[in-house]
């Protein structure tokens, strides 16, 4: 199968069950809201080294923030509910509360919840106040620019992490152009984020290493500089590979993000679109590339 002359390989991306939360971060203007959300989702590229994966997402079309101010959604993914509580406490406490004019609300209706504002409120040193509005408890923590408003609890729900696809290209510039186009399209999908810098990862990994104690190492079959030294998965004329990893609040969100991303990435200079998997035996979710793009 080809799109615009780009081969779509007959393979699938293998993704895993995770836990997801959605925060709505607001500020006096969109700039401050985005600053707070990006700070909270910074250094959250991979569960392995960061404890969570996170990214920002525009609000859904027509979605109002609880306080009516400009806002941005921040999606956070972890491997367990308990890890989510730890991650949100750190990130809301250190990155959102510290950001001028910010406020933080739950953006995910879910049965399971983790207490975040209910713990961060102690920063108020006894002067915190709460309001119960429409069944949601809001904490008002005194800070130097007024008050930091944070919701008592945040919803946590089962989610999907690790959707992915590779873009093989004749040149790095062609790979970058494809990646930029793909990420721009994928960012418009509600409930999905690309946790790596700029939404793109260049240091794809394999789960083995020649060094003791090192669990993962560079994805050598896809490194163009190693062609000739190692078994290569690259074809003749392929000189750069970039990967996009997708986490989503639902299987449908990941599938939709991959679909629009692949379609946007099929640009001149791109030779193939492929995906990473472990033979299908590890991940609960399989996203067949050809099925995605033919829907």
């Amino acid at each position: 199968m080809h799109i615009n002359g780009v081969e779509i390989e007959d393979t699938f991306a293998e993704a895993f069950g995770m836990w997801g939360s959605r925060l709505i971060v607001t500020g006096d203007d969109l700039g401050w809201a985005r600053t707070a959300a990006e700070a909270a989702t910074g250094f959250a590229t991979s569960i392995i080294g960061c404890g969570c994966e996170a990214g920002t997402n525009d609000l859904a079309s027509g979605e109002q923030t609880p306080d009516g101010r400009p806002g941005v959604a921040a999606l956070v993914f972890t491997t367990s509910r308990k890890n989510m509580e730890a991650a949100l406490l750190q990130r809301v406490g250190q990155a959102v509360m510290t950001c001028a004019t910010s406020a933080c609300y739950n953006g995910l209706a879910a049965d399971e919840k983790v207490r975040i504002g209910g713990k961060l409120r102690y920063f108020g040193d006894g002067f915190q106040r709460s309001k119960l509005l429409d069944g949601r408890r809001l904490w008002r923590v005194p800070v130097m620019d007024g008050e930091f408003v944070v919701e008592e609890s945040f919803g946590v729900a089962r989610a999907v992490g690790g959707g992915n696809f590779f873009m093989m290209a004749r040149s790095l510039s062609a790979a970058l152009a494809a990646a930029r186009a793909a990420v721009a399209a994928m960012r418009a999908v509600p409930g999905a984020i690309m946790p790596f810098p700029g939404g793109v990862v260049r240091s794809g990994s394999k789960i083995s290493s020649r060094y003791k104690g090192q669990n993962v190492s560079s994805n050598t079959p896809y490194c163009p500089t190693l062609r000739g030294q190692e078994d290569s998965s690259l074809k003749e004329g392929e000189n750069a590979v970039l990967e996009i990893v997708v986490d989503g609040l639902s299987e449908a969100a990941v599938a939709e993000a991959m679909r629009v991303g692949i379609a946007a990435a099929c640009l001149p200079g791109v030779t193939r679109i492929s995906a990473g998997n472990y033979g299908g035996s590890l991940g609960q979710f399989h996203f067949a590339l050809r099925d995605l793009v033919s829907t």
């Binding site: 607001t26 609880p66 306080d67 009516g68 101010r69 007024g146």
Partner: peptide, 15 residues
Amino acid sequence: ACSYRPVFLSCYLQS
């Protein structure tokens, strides 16, 4: 105490 724009109040007004 001060003059300010209370964010929590905006939540009520939205609601």
